[in-house]
Design a protein around this nucleic acid. Structure first.
Lengths: 197, 197, 197, 197
DNA sequence: GATGAATGAGAGTTCATTCAT
DNA sequence: GATGAATGAACTCTCATTCAT
């Protein structure tokens, strides 16, 4: 009887093993053999589950952002006030980042590959930012209608809000000692959102 | 007598040729031979001017940010109003970015290597962000004193302001079609700075 | 399951393939690709077994002299008369050399690298000559005590004896047509040893 | 008026500068640029005097052995006793070696290239050893006739004598700390020659 | 005549991928 | 299904040689 393996589950495991390696060394400097060792499988096994290094990275991206979206979704459903929806999400987000800093270095590679790797130009991937912008635009428009936010260009503001969060993350990843993303990030986002009322 | 060349000038030329290649392919995927072809010199010539690919990239970084600092300096001296100092700089900055988008992709690699490449841990390099934060903090504190800005935590605000600009750049580099950095960036920064008054 | 290979055995095979190439072209002019072709493996395979060209050469050195030492040991145990111990060894040695002349060209590189390559300064390697001198000194002193040899400075004589054999090899390697190392070498060594009685 | 240069003299100078570099690094690891620096000329200048690195090395060889032959010749003319002819030469030879050890490392390369470099197979070069053997054979035969030496095979003995001297040099170059070539070499050669009487 | 800036063939080495076991 | 030994294309870097000045 052949060993029964849940293919999907094992893929997941392998991706989980790959992420910290990609994060540590960067996509191009990560060796498949490193991932194999870290995942405690043979190099060949990786190729049983992913046709190439690129695809493995793509999958990491997908897993990562589906988790991101899930978190987002959860907050959306829990919080009803639009200010709290945005703020709660980022508060939680920055707290997570601060705890798993080493993992978040992978953003450098997501960002970089997103613009340069044809594989990551697949529709479902390259839309990540557009979806987020749409989501925030919706929240903002809803808040404006409900007189929670003052009148403004919701599209511009959603871009700016995402920019602020990304920029904080970026700056912190480059020099984590410079400030606490959890603390400073919370203050900055709160202040920004308050300015929208 | 051999051809007389201005070594410094030629280094400059080679870096200028290297930047768009680094920007296009990313540091790790850029081949020295690509740069050589683009610079219209032999591969060996690159090594006459830079001891390694790493050092060439480092030099690109230095050249880039010294130019950045120069621009900054110029604006500082021209403008006297702190709001205008910040705004003028970013207006000009975003305009430049929009014209040379392909070159600015190199930021992905500056960011990424800044955290992972021991070469870029040299003091003068890794201080880039700290210097910028200090500069903005100074401007803000000056503005607060002069009652141009309302009372605020200047350090947090300087981090946030840089974050906003970087985040806009980042988002735009990933998907330039989504918005015009010149236009939207201008609006967003103006709005942010107005909120500080 | 992947192919099961005896790593040690394969290393041995690769070294055996490398030796004649090193011998033919010299260490510096031997290309890893030549060795790979000769060993009928891919270039990469060499690097599975040796971390560098230097280390491959070092291993060749070790293999070579451990074989030399083995032969020596065997003769020591078979022959009891000190004259025969030395003579039998060199008779056999010169006979081997004459049959494998092309291989012995590698001595030029052992000699040369021994003085210039820091890799070969490892204790076990650079002691090759000292061990041989000690061995011969022992044999000679034993022979003097047993009145087989006349009284003499055993240390000087052991140096001289090794010198004679090396010098014969050297001269013959440079111009094999000039004489037969087997014949002339046998006569010369016999005559030299007889002069010690 | 063009600068008047004695071409032959300058060639000589350049070779003299090249020899210690070849000796230090070995032929293959010696860079033309190193020689140029050491000779205090431009790289291009070397090529004005020698068509290639190989030819420069060839010339070094020729200069070296013509000097060797000169010394030899001088002793031959000064000394009349065949024992003294041989002994005086080697005494002087070993003394020189001990003083210029670093230069004599070049022998590894002479030896090695002599068998492998087609350039050094030119008749006048590869005959170096044959000429020396002929010379010694003549001296020995003369001595035998004059009853200074006992009856022996002069050809075999000349090979052996050269072997002894070369072997001593070789052993000493590899491990100069092991003994003094001047002292031990003198004793060994004297003892060997005395054995021929 | 003298030079050294420029060159590119070719070296050692790496690593994503394959496939026999 | 799992593996890691084998591979070679492709990389960075070197250096003998050339030639414009």
């Amino acid at each position: 009887m052949p060993k029964i393996v849940n293919k999907t589950e094992k893929r997941e495991q392998l991706v989980q093993a790959a992420i910290p390696i990609f994060a540590k060394f960067g996509f191009r400097d990560t060796k498949m053999s490193d991932i194999a060792i870290h995942a405690d499988v043979g190099k060949g096994t990786l190729y049983e589950y992913f046709p190439s290094k690129d695809e493995l990275f793509l999958h990491a991206f997908r897993v990562w952002f589906s988790y991101f979206a899930e978190q987002m979704q959860e907050i959306m459903e829990t919080e009803k006030d639009p200010r709290r929806q945005i703020l709660s999400f980022y508060t939680q987000y920055f707290a997570t980042i601060e705890s798993y800093r080493d993992m978040y270095q992978i953003y450098f590679d997501f960002w970089s590959e997103l613009t340069r790797n044809p594989l990551l130009n697949k529709q479902d991937i390259s839309d990540v930012y557009q979806s987020l912008r749409d989501l925030f635009t919706g929240i903002l428009e809803d808040g404006i209608e409900r007189k929670i936010f003052r009148s403004m260009d919701a599209q511009v503001t959603s871009v700016a809000m995402i920019a602020m969060a990304d920029g904080l993350l970026l700056q912190w990843l480059i020099e984590p000692a410079a400030f606490s993303i959890k603390d400073l990030g919370g203050v900055a986002m709160t202040s920004y959102i308050n300015g929208l009322c």
